[in-house]
Simulated scan of single mutants.
Amino acid sequence: MAKERELPLIALRAFAVAARAPSLSSAAKELGVTHGAVSKQIRSLESWLGQHLFTREGRGLTLTPYGKILAEQLGQSFKDIGAACDYVRRQRSKTVLAIEAPSTFAMYFLMPRLRRFEVRNANVSVWISTRMTGETPDISANDLVITRGTAERIGSYLKDTTALFTENLTPVSAEVLLQRRPVKKPADILKHSLITSATRPGHWEAWLQEAGVRDYLLEGGHRFDHMFVAMHAVREGLGSIVAPKEFFAGPSRWKLRCPLPDIAVKGEQYFAHSTSRADPRHVSRVVDWLKEEIGK
């Protein structure tokens, strides 16, 4: 495969225009060069490829089978490039802020609220990437990194750190499940399958102890490798899970509810870290907004 720096881009563009133009003269006019210059670029490209791209038929030129394949691919590629350039030109009045966050936080806290930030900050476009538990944050590609728990491994690469909130962990259930098996007191939760995730061990034990529930057996539930995967099972009504109350404080688009919100145990703390590539003005707006959302 040819390396990017080896591609004869000028010749490829000349060929792409010539391939869709009715003649080399019209291609030359579109490119703003002479007929001879277009011919020279095409000959150079054919030499580089080791294939003929045109055959002469009478006074005109016809694409060879290889020429047709190349013309089709180049035509789509140049359209894609043009579309990307048009998008960037349209967005030049906007500032792009890249945020990386844990998957569950991004899905259940950040994205459902993002529209409110964009309404208030029309000149800022937020790009979100997610990170699985155990993965090292990508500092070089983001302006703001959200972490759960300590971030000692990346501390030397960060510019500024702000504490956002500490999790208040409480059972979360789908409304459809609560209709079938209501939860009025802590022991009622044992009527549900207790869903757990490998990345958050011990949550049910801690909450049941806090709730004063004794003599229970944690069996017959569902266990998943990651929290955000386990949340899909909760949304399907397969059982309940202990999760941060902050994610589900208001109406949920997934119809999830905290049946016993006043009984909670403390979990990990979340932090917002700005990176060395970030513009402090825009990062501070996002951090202030996050803290405002958490306080609602």
Rank of each mutant, 00 (worst) to 15 (best):
A2M: 15
A2G: 08
L7Y: 13
L12S: 12
V17T: 13
V17N: 06
A19S: 15
R20H: 11
A21G: 10
P22H: 03
P22A: 01
S23L: 02
A27W: 14
A28S: 10
K29C: 01
L31Y: 07
G36E: 11
A37N: 11
R43T: 10
R43H: 13
S44C: 00
L45N: 12
E46V: 04
L49R: 11
H52W: 01
F54L: 03
T55R: 15
R59W: 09
L61Q: 06
K68N: 07
K68V: 11
G75H: 09
G75L: 01
K79I: 06
D80E: 11
A83P: 03
C85W: 08
Y87F: 06
R90M: 05
L97Y: 07
A98E: 15
E100K: 00
E100I: 00
P102F: 05
S103P: 10
S103L: 09
T104L: 03
A106W: 12
A106F: 13
L110D: 10
M111A: 13
M111N: 14
R113N: 12
F117D: 07
S129F: 01
S129R: 11
S129Q: 06
T130D: 02
G134C: 04
E135R: 13
P137E: 06
D143C: 02
R148V: 02
A151C: 04
I154H: 14
L158N: 12
L158Q: 05
E167H: 10
E167T: 07
N168A: 12
L169F: 02
V172K: 10
S173N: 05
E175T: 00
L177R: 11
L178F: 02
R180V: 00
R181I: 01
R181Y: 03
R181T: 07
A187R: 15
A187D: 14
A187L: 10
D188N: 08
I189S: 05
T196F: 00
S197R: 09
S197M: 06
H203W: 09
H203N: 10
R214I: 08
R214T: 15
Y216L: 02
L217T: 12
H222A: 09
D225C: 04
F228I: 02
R235T: 11
I241R: 06
V242G: 13
P244Y: 02
E246W: 01
P251D: 05
P251S: 08
R253C: 00
W254S: 07
K255E: 13
L256M: 12
R257T: 07
K266W: 01
G267Q: 07
E268Q: 14
Q269C: 03
Y270F: 13
Y270K: 03
T275L: 04
T275N: 09
S276I: 12
R277Y: 01
A278P: 12
D279Q: 10
V283Y: 07
S284H: 08
V287N: 07
G295D: 14
